[in-house]
Design a protein around this nucleic acid. Structure first.
Lengths: 179, 179
DNA sequence: TGCCCATATATCGGGGTGATGTATAGTATC
DNA sequence: GATACTATACATCACCCCGATATATGGGCA
């Protein structure tokens, strides 16, 4: 399950351009599977070369051509085969936790700043989830709700843990900061 | 904060070879910052070329030379500068959630299998955390405890959410599976 | 007028992943 | 005693992905 496969999956919901898919990756997939143009455009080109998607170029004045992609029956087969894999990965790459590992090499202020910023980021995600549920909750499939729910639960747990245990990390200086 | 920086950080805890660092990445860092030989060896070579670590080759009979690395004062400076960054990232790359997004294209059995396997993986991590706390809890710095605690909290939250909401995902077939 | 934002494509360097290769020696299993 | 697996220990390579940057234009806004 790479960017190519996720693009295929998104295209089962209707034809779209690379630009459209990027917005999808940002909004609904952003919190667990981010992708930028540097991944999406090569992915679509490769899928088209393999006949898993078809491409229709729509000329526009001024702007570059819109390239609208549709999934083909072969593409659908590849997608379903990928969805059949029983053990899809779930990986975390956290510079945040890596930093915290070396908290004993940092000042209490530095640690406090890192923790505060992490909480702020979590709260930004929480707002994003709220907006998502208020706007496009009805039209999206069941699976999407589930991912939002997991996202919420996981971020809430992390926030709570930081708030309850963050102070123990600040031992180098006497300054204790509230979150 | 890339693999190079994390290697520097690990070397503040004592000299080590690439092989040693790999074991470190697997055990204590595995759940939030995995790295393989393909990242570690080039990272150490690059650090040595920049004078941030020094390398001592220890010949062994039969096996290849052991290359033991030590952090240099310049390396320590680079590490401390990296730890000063106020907003370290925390990214998730989840083929699991990407798969679940397309649950409406899967059979109830397929969905159940994916959820069951995810829970099994979480429980494997929970055991790993238990072992870690029983063996090397006393010698590791405070930050390490914190990362284990967050790992526990986050995984518990995900497990609970799956157990409480997983059944809603199975609507295509009548077969309801318990977790 | 200047500036940012949205639309829309694409590329490129640097970095990371997973698999594989090369050796040797000890330890299980059968 | 043969086979297979595991551990030690290095290294490389193809492929994939990320972030930044480039190119082009029209609309809103101060």
């Amino acid at each position: 399950m790479d960017v190519k496969t996720v693009c295929l999956g998104m295209l089962t919901d209707g034809d779209a351009s690379g630009y459209d898919l990027k917005k999808h990756f940002e909004s609904s997939f952003g919190h667990f599977f981010a992708a930028g143009y540097g991944s999406i455009y090569p992915a679509l080109a490769s899928l088209a070369a393999d006949g898993l998607v078809s491409c229709e170029c729509i000329p526009q004045d001024g702007k570059p051509d819109r390239k609208v992609y549709s999934i083909t029956p072969a593409g659908r087969d590849v997608l379903l085969a990928e969805l059949d894999k029983p053990n899809p990965s779930h990986k975390i790459r956290s510079e945040f936790l890596a930093t915290i590992c070396f908290a004993h090499l940092m000042s209490a202020d530095q640690v406090a700043t890192v923790l505060r910023n992490r909480i702020a980021e979590i709260e930004a995600y929480e707002k994003l989830f709220d907006e998502f549920e208020q706007t496009c909750m009805h039209e999206t499939p069941h699976g999407m709700h589930f991912t939002v729910g997991i996202g919420r639960a996981v971020m809430l747990a992390m926030k709570k843990y930081i708030q309850e245990n963050g102070h123990e990390l600040q031992h180098r200086s006497a300054t204790v900061v509230n979150f």
